[in-house]
Write a protein that binds this DNA or RNA. Structure first.
Lengths: 243, 243
DNA sequence: CATAATTAGGCACGCAGTGCCAAAACGAAG
DNA sequence: CTTCGTTTTGGCACTGCGTGCCTAATTATG
């Protein structure tokens, strides 16, 4: 029964944890999530049932244990990064999450299968991504609790999460394909392009005065603005920026 | 012949359902969610424990029962609405959800308190909104399963949900205030303005050919595009549209 | 080696959720 | 009103998650 420090030596930290997670994933994958009991996981991993609950709290949490650690890493990253370019920072954070997924396909791929099959786990996964979204929103709001900037931040956070999930899902469907980093970056650029500019000056014209020269140009006008007026404003904006 | 999880049975005219929900909310509010047992709800509402599970499936589902009905209403609305202006349709659907919330504050307000206090219920609420987001994404994708339009649709759906939640939360904090319909519509306009146009022709030039005359004009170009080239393209796009 | 502190294991309990079967309400003939 | 078939409801027992409590093992410390 007792096998202390014998078989699987992962790396520094807690190898026992990983060992339990691997055993649980194997059982879930084989017999199904609902059919696998905590007693079964305890027997397969060599840990007592009581200790399982002590360390992971619940059956679901065994699957999402390292996801929690990742979330803490990301939040620490956000706290440590000054808000020079909040949109870019949030995209970088999303990139960290994406990287963490593709780094351990032996965990994330079977988990994805389970998440799609079991509604309870699906809700749990969604709740996890919602936590990221909340952290992103808070970072983008930068202390403000009201005003249009908050809305813009929440919309951008939601879009960044959506874009992340979009690319991640496509990779999870085909984990043998090369990791689509380019598609990921393009997706991030897509959402940043439209909503990121709104963050700076929320609402009317985003290009005038502070056009981002090495990324893109975004021009937004109310429909009430006449066509010639739009053309004039674009011309002005381009006149200030470089060619 | 019982249906596990199938929570819709009586369509209209089931006062017993509402009665049970009201009793449960009262108990949750008084003694806390965890401390309230199904036996207690059964005793307080006058139905047997077994029938509680039969009709609602789980303890959580008692709180979110009518939320499920609302979701079906919304999906039916989407299915019945042709995709003339998908972004506007999705915003209208979000408006239906918002309306359903503010229509029954005696349910939604105490539920909001519970959701904020109990992590389990919070996850459930998030999962509910995710279902809406999925339905919106599917509607915006219009059958396509790949390509940039899908990404744009998912980002827009996520933003619409975020905007909806943003305004809804502010009202839930102060339900005695008048319902902020204007703020809701402005929030929807905000996210539609930036991402909605992307939906039509995703990525490069959004205005050419089918400029939305009664909403907004959004023009997006890569930074590599020369300024004069941008000006020329905008001019072309405006030449086709109205002045 | 002795002792205090931390950690794991064993045990029992509460409660959500389910399957099964019996009792009751319902509805349509006769 | 009675009788039969259907549908709904209630009662009971059972599985399994999650927890509190206590004891045993392990480790740290003097």
């Amino acid at each position: 029964m007792e096998e202390p420090g014998g078989s699987e030596r992962g790396r520094a930290g807690k190898p026992a944890r990983r060992h339990v997670v691997a055993a649980a994933v194997r059982l879930f994958d084989g017999a199904g999530y609902e059919a696998t009991t905590m007693d079964g996981i305890a027997a397969a991993s060599g840990v007592s049932r009581r200790s399982l609950f002590r360390h992971f709290g619940s059956k679901e949490d065994i699957l999402f244990a390292e996801h929690d650690e990742l979330f803490e890493t990301v939040t620490r990253y956000l706290e440590a990064t000054p808000g020079d370019d909040p949109a870019a920072t949030v995209c970088a954070a999303a990139r960290m999450v994406f990287q963490a997924y593709v780094d351990v396909p032996e965990i994330t791929v079977p988990r994805y299968r389970l998440v799609r099959a079991v509604p309870r786990l699906r809700d749990r996964e969604i709740a996890m991504t919602a936590r990221y979204q909340g952290a992103f929103s808070r970072y983008l709001a930068r202390g403000e609790t009201t005003g249009p900037r908050v809305l813009a931040g929440e919309a951008l956070a939601a879009s960044v999460i959506a874009a992340h999930n979009h690319v991640l899902r496509s990779w999870l469907h085909d984990p043998d394909q090369p990791v689509p980093w380019a598609r990921f970056d393009r997706a991030m650029e897509f959402v940043t392009r439209s909503l990121g500019a709104m963050l700076r000056s929320s609402g009317q014209t985003a290009a005038a005065g502070e056009s981002p020269r090495d990324t893109v140009l975004v021009a937004v006008y109310p429909s009430s603005t006449g066509g010639t007026d739009v053309l004039r404003r674009v011309s002005e904006a381009l006149g200030e920026g470089p060619g």
